[in-house]
Design a protein around this nucleic acid. Sequence first.
DNA 1: TTGAAAGCGCTAACAG
DNA 2: CTGTTAGCGCTTTCAA
Lengths: 339, 339
Amino acid sequence: MKRVTITDVAQRAGVSKSTVSHVINETRFVEVDTRLKVLQAIGELGYRPSGIARSLVSQRTRTAGLLISDVGNPFYHEVIMGVEEVALSHGYSVFLCNTNYDLDRGMKLIQSLIDKSVDGVLFMSSSMTIEMVQEVLKNQVYAVVLDWGNAGVDQLASTLTINFDKGTQDAVRHLVALGHREIGYISGPLSLWTAQVRKDAFFCACAENGLDPERAFIMQGNLRVEGGHRAFDDYLKREPRPTAVVAANDLTAIGFLLAAQDHGLSLPRDVSIVGLDDIDLASRVTPPLTTISLPRYEIGMLAMQMLLEIIDNPARGNQQQEVATSLVVRESTARVAEV
Amino acid sequence: MKRVTITDVAQRAGVSKSTVSHVINETRFVEVDTRLKVLQAIGELGYRPSGIARSLVSQRTRTAGLLISDVGNPFYHEVIMGVEEVALSHGYSVFLCNTNYDLDRGMKLIQSLIDKSVDGVLFMSSSMTIEMVQEVLKNQVYAVVLDWGNAGVDQLASTLTINFDKGTQDAVRHLVALGHREIGYISGPLSLWTAQVRKDAFFCACAENGLDPERAFIMQGNLRVEGGHRAFDDYLKREPRPTAVVAANDLTAIGFLLAAQDHGLSLPRDVSIVGLDDIDLASRVTPPLTTISLPRYEIGMLAMQMLLEIIDNPARGNQQQEVATSLVVRESTARVAEV
DNA sequence: TTGAAAGCGCTAACAG
DNA sequence: CTGTTAGCGCTTTCAA
């Protein structure tokens, strides 16, 4: 049982291969009856065009690579779905590549993507280098990069940047409106670019809301629950105690929240807390966490759209886009207690 | 800047295309100097063989599709990594396909995989049908199916079955050894085949360990934390109260555990609890959960290996394999209290 | 309105 | 030991 080819269809329908091709692709007018004959032959034989043969001539595979750090990281779940959604609706399929935070592995994956002649790759792993992008580009495959602070990527490829300012400002404004004046911040490890960006956004937001960033109490977390615990210990020693705390991510915020409750504090009465990420868990803890939400699904969709854009329209050049974060108010923030 | 082809290399090296092909693939002997010339030409031109052209002649794409229900489901994370690991080490790339628990979408994804001429597809989504497998097979692409109880799949394709008996028996034996005689069970919705299988394994394990399954107290959960909460309410009303409880999955067990603690019970002193899945959270709750662990990474690796096996060796026919579950003893189980 | 034929980039007989 | 040539299955001029 061998493959049914366009030649088989042509013979069966008593026409030429090119006619068959044209009815399939609707790429030139075909007399109604001949078209019908062709369609019938296709049906009877159960013919399906070979994507490979098509790719060989069109130089397009309708496939893309998605480079991420780790499928287990909840950040990526919705991103992946967003990517997949627009990919599927455009006839694209996507190769999933986990770097496991390993640059060598990342490069290997990139090479295998190039070998497969993907039309483009979405760089979403923080474990990536400019070299990877260059390698991809050198092999005529397009790239869209989620901005992790690599200098100069925007010269090479389309980039997508997450703007933390908007959400962070909303958060600080929200707290100030609730009467908070002493707002603490739990940062991530400042060796990470993202932690830096988020902290900067916080300082910025303070300034914009009439608070002196220099006076803000900065605690050191590690982006995990446990870092939030530790930050709470620092918090206790601070005088005066901030009435509200903003954390670099939800896990940190939750760690702080749990530690505070363990210590007998009542939230949000004794202290308000704001997270960042809006992970699933955020709405499930008690009290549900007010948090700065990343539009993860949108990031996925947008990135894939940008890729399609540049594939279909290389002439238009690289695009740089931004997605905004936004505040989700739940119950972990409240009006500051009267003294 | 157009693609460098094998012809370019041949010209530059002053040999024929076939010679170039043969040095690349090491598929026939080539005089040392000519080989060197070819290699040099390849280097100078930065030539990379076109996977597409190769696929067209070899009828192999070195790609596979992985059909899952939902990337957000933690079950899949390690599975995906296992699949990817063996795929990568064999030069394969894998298309990730999320059905989102939707059969229509699943079929669409399958079609797109067929269009891409994948060599095989891994059916790991519980939202799948025999028709999907047949569709794939009809188009000469191989299939490996994670066993979700679809009758007759093993006739069509290689299957991988998770054997819950082993782990469940170990669990019950463990509890019996600790002196437990009254063991309750929190099942999932029995409309789900997997819930059924797990419950059967529990009954079986009871019988094997000299307990009367008919007397076991069965509570109804929903595979989520909240179902564990509700099950605890039932548990309280039971007379005599079981001294140990086995749950259909970890989330349920954790729900039960939290509810018990809320109610003032001390675990594992007042009641022992065993989960199933060994999710991340299991080792992080207090007390860390004793649980029946699924070899997720192994499932991924094995499935991909089986796929490669059947691709490389269709003559050998479909294989049916099983992976065993095993007990991970932590601190949520203890000797039954003296009366 | 349709067909013939060249060619996408590679592999693998078949010759020599 | 190496080259010639015929495809793999499709699209797309060019001609009719």
